[in-house]
């Protein structure tokens, strides 16, 4: 083993590359919600189970990346962004995958019937939630450019615009939640009470996927904005 000069020891392990790997994994996990909900709409529960397993596996992989980042972030590490911001961002990002997994598990444990009236809006809502997370992935991907420019204001304003896009998608998703819930309670008499409650919880869990994407966007904002 050769002598390691102080200059080499000065360079720490950067968290930004694994941070990007993490959002890619989370995004991949959330993208699985589309086939999952499609299978649910078709009431194909065998397929639901299959996709739920896949989601669970992706969530676990994201967890491994997350833990790896946390383990290599000592307090003495000096970074261009606040260490706390990175950890909070990571946590929000990770909760996105957690919620997606929760949703998949909920579909797995009970074969709830979906009323025909809701089918179209459920698919629309799912797409919107996925779009929100996709928007986060795009914004977080630009972080490398911000770092490359050493936090130049041009690159920062680009990312801020992209974060604004996440907020917009989340807001649209929220509107769809309201519409969906209204429709659900309009047809509540046709369903048994447990199904109503289950569907209601499914909608809220799906919504929290988008909520945490918005929160992660907020964290990204504090990370890149000028200190």
């Amino acid at each position: 083993m050769a002598y390691i000069p102080p200059l080499v020891k000065l360079f720490g392990k950067s968290p930004f590359k694994p941070l990007h790997e993490h959002i890619l994994k989370v995004n991949e996990c959330v993208n699985q919600l589309k086939p999952l909900i499609e299978a649910f709409v078709d009431q194909d529960f065998k397929k639901v189970n299959e996709i739920a397993e896949r989601i669970s596996k992706l969530e676990h992989e994201a967890d491994i990346i997350k833990n790896n980042i946390r383990e290599h972030l000592p307090k003495t590490l000096f970074m261009p962004v606040d260490r706390c911001d990175i950890l909070m961002f990571l946590k929000e990002q990770d909760t996105i995958a957690d919620r997606a997994e929760d949703l998949a598990r909920m579909l797995e444990v009970r074969e709830t019937k979906l009323p025909v009236e809701l089918k179209e809006d459920v698919l629309k809502f799912t797409n919107k939630v996925i779009e929100t997370v996709n928007a986060l992935e795009v914004a977080a991907g630009e972080l490398s450019e911000v770092i490359e420019s050493s936090f130049g204001k041009h690159e920062i304003s680009k990312v801020l615009k992209l974060i604004h896009n996440i907020d917009k998608k989340e807001w649209e998703a929220d509107k769809l939640v309201l519409k969906l819930l209204r429709k659900l309670f309009e047809v509540e008499n046709k369903l048994d009470p447990i199904s109503v409650l289950h569907l209601e919880r499914l909608i809220h869990t799906m919504d929290s996927v988008a909520d945490h994407a918005e929160n992660a966007g907020d964290r990204l904002r504090t990370m890149v904005a000028r200190r």
Partner: peptide, 29 residues
Amino acid sequence: TSHTIVGSVIGVGFARGINALNLGIIKNI
């Protein structure tokens, strides 16, 4: 020379130029 280059790299780091610096090395120096 070694300590000077360490100082210079930290200077770039304070201008938000470097992803992760292990400032624990300062204690050793």
